[in-house]
Amino acid sequence: MADSSYKRHLAKTITWRLVGTIDTILLSWFVTGDLFTGLQIGLAETVTKLILYFLHERVWYKINLDKDGRTLDSRKRHLAKTVTWRFIGTLDTVVLAWIISGNPLSGLKIGFAEVVTKMLLYYVHERVWYKIDFGLSKRKNKE
């Protein structure tokens, strides 16, 4: 049977995707001036980003940043996760927005606009989940 971290990562994936999709829909609508295009971009990325985010969580779960074998849960770790996820997420958004809108400039504008909004939102999401014990068999020391 899979360890409880899978449940935690799945729950984090779903909550983040909800926040991220709403942000993308609003940014896409603003950039393109078309609500339908914003909805198409937001809904399309729901599928790609659910998969990419889950994989990102699994990779970070296996990354060991501490010398004594413990996984380090800290603000630095959350910042590093934020940066790596934002790179992956922005690239995904740029490509999808370009394909759906048919305009590479719209894809770039949407992608770069969300760099700021999503990094802030993601950091807050990570900090909230750091306080939640769901899916943890044993809570490691908090800072």
Rank of each mutant, 00 (worst) to 15 (best):
D133K: 08
V115K: 03
T37N: 12
K118N: 02
L72C: 03
K118Y: 10
A113S: 11
V31Y: 13
L18T: 08
G89R: 01
L120I: 12
G89A: 01
M1D: 13
H125E: 01
G20H: 02
T84Y: 04
V59W: 07
I110M: 03
L10F: 15
G102W: 11
N103R: 11
T71W: 04
S101V: 04
V128N: 08
A113N: 10
W98S: 06
V116P: 02
I99Q: 07
H56I: 00
S5V: 12
L39K: 01
T71A: 06
H125W: 04
Y123W: 13
L26S: 02
T37E: 10
S137G: 15
V128E: 01
L43T: 08
N141C: 07
G102Q: 08
I110A: 02
L50M: 03
K49L: 01
G107L: 05
D3L: 02
T48K: 01
I25L: 05
K76T: 09
D92T: 01
S101K: 03
A2W: 14
Y6C: 05
D23F: 09
I99F: 08
E45I: 05
F36Y: 13
K62I: 06
D133Q: 04
L72G: 00
G102S: 13
K109T: 07
L55Y: 11
N64S: 05
V115L: 06
D34K: 14
T32Y: 10
F36L: 14
K138T: 06
H56C: 00
L26D: 07
A97R: 07
G107W: 05
L65Y: 12
L121F: 09
I22G: 13
G107P: 00
R86M: 06
W85M: 02
V47G: 01
I110K: 07
I14C: 02
E57T: 09
G89S: 03
L35P: 04
G111K: 08
D23C: 07
A11S: 12
K142Y: 11
K118S: 02
D73T: 14
K109V: 06
N103L: 05
K138L: 11
L120D: 00
G89Y: 01
L10D: 06
E143L: 12
K131H: 14
K67G: 12
H9N: 00
Y61W: 04
E114I: 15
T24N: 12
G107H: 07
K67N: 13
T84D: 01
R17D: 09
N64E: 13
I14F: 09
T13P: 01
R75G: 13
G69E: 10
E45K: 09
W60F: 10
D68N: 12
Y130F: 15
L55G: 14
T37A: 08
G135V: 11
W60P: 00
H9C: 03
W129L: 00
R8T: 06
I100S: 00
K62E: 08
W98G: 02
L79I: 04
L55T: 13
I14K: 10
L39V: 11
V94D: 04
V31R: 09
G38V: 06
F36G: 11
I22H: 03
V115C: 00
T32W: 15
F36K: 13
L96C: 05
A44F: 04
P104W: 13
F30C: 05
I63A: 10
G69Q: 12
K142G: 03
K142M: 15
S5W: 10
